[in-house]
Design a protein around this nucleic acid. Structure first.
Lengths: 347, 347
DNA sequence: TCGGTTATCTTAATGCATTAAGTTCGCTTG
DNA sequence: CAAGCGAACTTAATGCATTAAGATAACCGA
């Protein structure tokens, strides 16, 4: 196959300059290996000839590294870029990787086929944020590159995570202390359905690895211990962490009779949407309905009323993942702390 | 140099399977070129042997493409991921590229040296968001790959932009209609200083290519036409689009005597910070001070009081850039429309 | 039965650069 | 002055896969 472009190659430059390829290569990569004058002459000529430096693919082929980290986001990219928690995570990642030689290759993990047989395997390793499909995981295992998983655990990979169960339980314990009933749960990605709905208890089997299930169990165990029953038909499944879907679910939940007096939400976004829904239904928060969130995104504090929620260090998750990836930390897997933040929405 | 890893290669797999390398390659890339049974046998054996597919660097070396788009953000990555406008832009990009074969390699454009001699040149082309250093631009020109610039224009590159001058002018015309004086401008990245300060008129020379200068000129021309004077010492430079810096600048501006009765801000983030500053100084918006923004980020609408601002289609910027990049649009450079949105902060 | 397809696989040229090891040569040093 | 050394280059092996073109055998229609 002929290259359509007529970009010069290192070899051509060497010939034109009357030096060896090694010397041209060194001019770009190891300045100490040649005289200053020659190096300058080479760089000047390259610039003049439109040679922008060694071909990255060829270089990588030789050296075996690319300087690129794959960031696999367990959702559509467009979605991830709009999610406050994912944004904070990316910020943390970027902060650390930016200081090293690494660039970030962001990719969604939905479509496993493209990813693994595709050009994405350029990367030196992966940071996997949220659980991808099993098939994608298998492929990742095959690549034997370094892989850090975030917000889920898989045997054989180092992970960065929080204790979702305990955090959720702690939050629910606080919220349930006032004995308000009934209680509804606005849950995120509990089952496979792609619309808002209540769940069937048996649908949850075999999904123990998902963080939202951990949170659900935390809620339910706290309820059980408090002697409060939360039937499956008061547990709502929301397929994605968006305002719109959260609003929808909240309206449904708040329309049930008897009306819930406490909404346990699995994310701040959902909780904020629920507050909006409550306002539109002329319900006061917290007087008529108490609401708790999860994540502690910036708006949780500034919103009126402010949101009682579980604080998690999303930015640190990114930082830590990046540091472990680069071997700047000795930890194997790590569990970051969380903290219950009590504010106005559920005092 | 010996590879430390013992990953199998396509050649080794071919040998082990007793077929040619071409056949193994075809098993991965062109299924129609071999029998179903053989293909399955090959893929199975590869999986079993831990061969995850053709080496991306080698493949790319042959084919000349990588399936990766470089997204060059004119700032620190961590910053860009936190900026609402950049986020929307990235969403738009992601939406379109996600549907094609492309992955996104995000990189900051601060440190030009690494970028261009580095592994980043893997990409098939660049989307450059915001103006990078001149040196980076020169390097980009050298690479003769396809380059789309966003929010700035450079000869030889296709661009996606808005008419910052007219939009700002239109906004200022509206705001100045009520003759409130004095007026201060909270400007973004007008000069090189890395702290909040007022500008010296002569510092602006030679920076005509920057969008914030266009906005500034729009503000100033509207003021001139309205017969309002805005001296340099009432034009504030804010080095980055953050709440904190915006707040700082707003406090400074509102502390001047006589106190400004109108703040023209170059971004919504700054404007929102200014509203916070005003509140902390017991000033009512818009009664005591009117405030306008730029961008129309989501919070502009939900904030109380809501923000008068210039709406720009940030997500579309990303979409359009991605489409042009892929040749799905015939446009050369394009100017997206903007719209003045009058809300409570400056009715 | 025979030339012509088709399906299936192989041969071998090629893409571009890195780098360990080797060569020159001028210069220091005992 | 011979040996030794360092600076400045060159040689050549190597990394891994793609793909046009060729080979082979089975199959097809007349």
């Amino acid at each position: 196959m002929r290259m359509q472009s007529d970009k010069p190659t290192l070899k051509q430059m060497a010939k034109k300059l009357g030096v060896s390829t090694a010397t041209v290569s060194n001019a770009f990569n190891r300045p100490s290996q040649l005289s200053r004058e020659l190096r300058e002459r080479i760089l000047k000529e390259c610039m003049a000839s439109g040679y922008a430096g060694p071909n990255a693919a060829a270089r990588s082929l030789r050296t075996g590294r690319t300087g690129i980290v794959g960031v696999m986001l367990s959702n559509y990219l467009a979605y991830s870029f709009s999610d406050p928690v994912a944004q904070q995570f990316l910020q943390g990642l970027a902060e650390v990787f930016e200081e090293s030689e690494y660039s970030l290759l962001v990719m969604p993990s939905r479509d496993h086929v493209k990813q693994v047989h595709g050009y994405e395997s350029f990367v030196d390793g992966f940071i996997v944020y949220g659980p991808p499909q099993q098939q994608t995981l298998d492929q990742l295992l095959l690549q034997h590159k370094s892989v850090i998983t975030v917000d889920f655990d898989v045997d054989g990979f180092t992970s960065v995570n929080i204790d979702n169960y305990s955090a959720a339980k702690r939050c629910a314990e606080h919220a349930l202390a006032n004995k308000d009933q009934p209680v509804a749960i606005l849950g995120l990605r509990l089952i496979a359905a792609n619309r808002v709905c209540v769940i069937q208890a048996e649908e949850l089997f075999g999904k123990e690895s998902i963080i939202t299930i951990h949170r659900l169990n935390g809620f339910l165990d706290a309820a059980a211990e408090a002697g409060v029953e939360i039937p499956a038909k008061r547990i709502f499944h929301i397929p994605d962490n968006t305002q719109e879907l959260g609003y929808q679910a909240a309206r449904q939940a708040l329309s049930r009779s008897p009306r819930p007096r406490l909404l346990l939400c699995m994310s701040d976004r959902i909780a904020l949407a629920a507050m909006r829904a409550a306002r539109h239904m002329d319900l006061r928060v917290p007087e008529d309905v108490r609401i708790t969130g999860f994540d502690d995104i910036p708006e949780a504090e500034t919103h009126n009323p402010s949101l009682t929620t579980v604080h998690q260090q999303s930015t640190d998750k990114g930082r830590v993942a990046a540091e472990i990836f680069q071997g700047k930390r000795l930890d194997k897997s790590i569990i970051l702390p969380t903290e219950l933040i009590v504010r106005e929405s559920c005092p």
